[in-house]
Simulated scan of single mutants.
Amino acid sequence: MLNNKTVVIGVSGGIAAYKACDIVSRLKKLNANVHVIMTKGATEFVTPLTFQSLSQNYVVSDMFEEPKTWDVEHISLAKKADVFLIAPATANVIGKVANGICDDMLTTTVMATTGRVLIAPAMNTNMYKNPILQRNISSLKELGYNFVNPESGRLACGDEGEGKLASPEIIVNEVVKLLNNKNNDLQGKKIMITAGPTVERIDPVRYITNRSTGKMGYAIAKIAADRGADVTLVSGPTNIEPPSNIKKLIKIQSAEDMYNAIIDNLDENQVIIKSAAVADYKPKAYSDKKIKKSNDDLVIELDRNKDIAYELGKIKKDKVLVGFAAETNDLIENAKGKVNKKNLDFIVANDLTEEGAGFGTDTNIVKIIDKEGNINKYPQMKKDEVANVILDKVKSLLEK
C-alpha cells in the first residue's frame, strides 16, 4: 500500500517511546521504507537496536557519531522523507521545533525536511494543557504542521487525563492519509456502509448464513473515515475489530434487522454502499426449542427476504447507491442486470472462483459497472486499495 514511500520517524524521550516500535512495525507491513531518528532521551527507554531490527535500516541518534554513509546525514534523511513523523513528541521537542531550535539530529532533520510533518504529542496532562505548549502547537499548525491529538486515560505518572499518545493504529492511519494525498477529501460527506453476513435463525442453536467475513465492507468504512467522511457502519456478525474513527456502528443479525437499520438511518446519509452479503431466504417458521434429531429427513421451508438494494433503489432520490455482486458465473451479465433492476449508480462485481477475490481474502479483483454500462476492470489489489477506488468513484458522483 505504501510502496516507494519513505517515512522518517523521530522518537523523543518519553515513556510512550515503546509504542513507536508498533508504529514502525505497522508501517513496514504496509511496505513503507522506514528510518528512525532517536533523541538521546529516547535511547534510555528503547534501544536503537530494537528500531534497527524493526525498520531494517540503521538508526541515527548522535549528530557526531561516525557516519554510516558519505551523505550529510540529516540532509539525506530530510530529503528522503515523504512524511516526517514525531512520535512520541514531548513538550521539549515541540517547543524546539516551534522556535527553530536545532540542537540534535531529530530537530535538525525536521527543520530541513520538505515532506509533510506529523506530530503526535505525549506527556502529562498539566504539561499538555500548559498555555506555552498550546501556543507552540497553534504556531506549528498555522505553519502547516499536522497533529494527532493525544488520548485521555491513565498516564504513566498515575494521573488521569489528556496526554496519552494516540494509538499506533490511529497514528499510522494519519500517515497513510498524508501519503495518499487524500486527506479529508470526503470531509462532511455522510456515508452508510453495510458489511458482513446476515444470520437467519432456524432454532436457538442453528441458523442459515454465508461465508462473508466483512473484510471488504470494513475496509471501505475505514478508508472513508480516514478520508474525512462521517461513516455509519451496519454490520452483520464478524470477527473484525471495527474501525476506531467511524461515527456510528450498528450491529445486526438478520436481513430484516439490516433493512430496518438502513431505513432508520437513510435520511441522514448521502451515500449507501451495500457491500454486505444478505441472505436471500429465511426459515418460514422459527422453532423456539431446539429441533431434535430423528430418523426422518428434516425439511425446512424458506421464505424470501426483502431485496434491500432493490427497495432502496425505489426511494433513493438523489442519494448515491452502490451495490455489490459476488458471482460464480456470467459475472458481467448478472451484474449489469442488478444495476438496472435495483437503480444502482454503479456495482462492484467480483468472481468468487478467481484466486485472490471474494470472501475471507485480504485482496479482491473487481469490475465496476455503472448505469450507463461502462465497465472498468481492476487487477488484484488489497481491499484497502479497492476501497479507495470505490470511494473515488463515489466522490466524483457527489461532485456532479
Score class of each variant (00 low, 15 high):
residue 214 G to M: 06
residue 119 I to Y: 09
residue 111 M to L: 15
residue 217 G to T: 07
residue 177 K to S: 15
residue 158 G to V: 00
residue 143 L to N: 10
residue 87 A to E: 00
residue 188 G to Y: 14
residue 124 N to E: 12
residue 212 S to Y: 03
residue 109 T to K: 09
residue 175 V to L: 01
residue 125 T to A: 10
residue 213 T to P: 05
residue 130 N to R: 07
residue 209 T to L: 05
residue 133 L to Y: 06
residue 125 T to C: 09
residue 178 L to E: 09
residue 117 V to K: 00
residue 133 L to H: 08
residue 128 Y to M: 03
residue 201 R to A: 13
residue 138 S to T: 15
residue 183 N to T: 11
residue 115 G to C: 07
residue 95 G to W: 07
residue 90 T to M: 00
residue 141 K to L: 01
residue 152 S to I: 03
residue 135 R to A: 08
residue 171 I to T: 03
residue 215 K to Q: 12
residue 196 G to F: 06
residue 123 M to L: 02
residue 176 V to S: 05
residue 118 L to H: 00
residue 195 A to V: 08
residue 95 G to E: 13
residue 132 I to C: 01
residue 166 A to C: 06
residue 100 G to T: 06
residue 154 R to Q: 11
residue 122 A to T: 10
residue 186 L to V: 05
residue 228 G to K: 08
residue 132 I to F: 11
residue 127 M to N: 11
residue 149 N to P: 03
residue 126 N to A: 14
residue 114 T to C: 05
residue 203 D to A: 15
residue 107 T to A: 09
residue 171 I to A: 02
residue 202 I to F: 12
residue 95 G to T: 07
residue 132 I to L: 13
residue 126 N to P: 02
residue 156 A to D: 05
residue 94 I to S: 01
residue 126 N to V: 09
residue 142 E to Q: 13
residue 147 F to I: 00
residue 179 L to K: 01
residue 104 D to V: 04
residue 119 I to P: 11
residue 92 N to S: 07
residue 170 I to A: 14
residue 124 N to S: 06
residue 126 N to R: 13
residue 198 T to S: 14
residue 115 G to N: 05
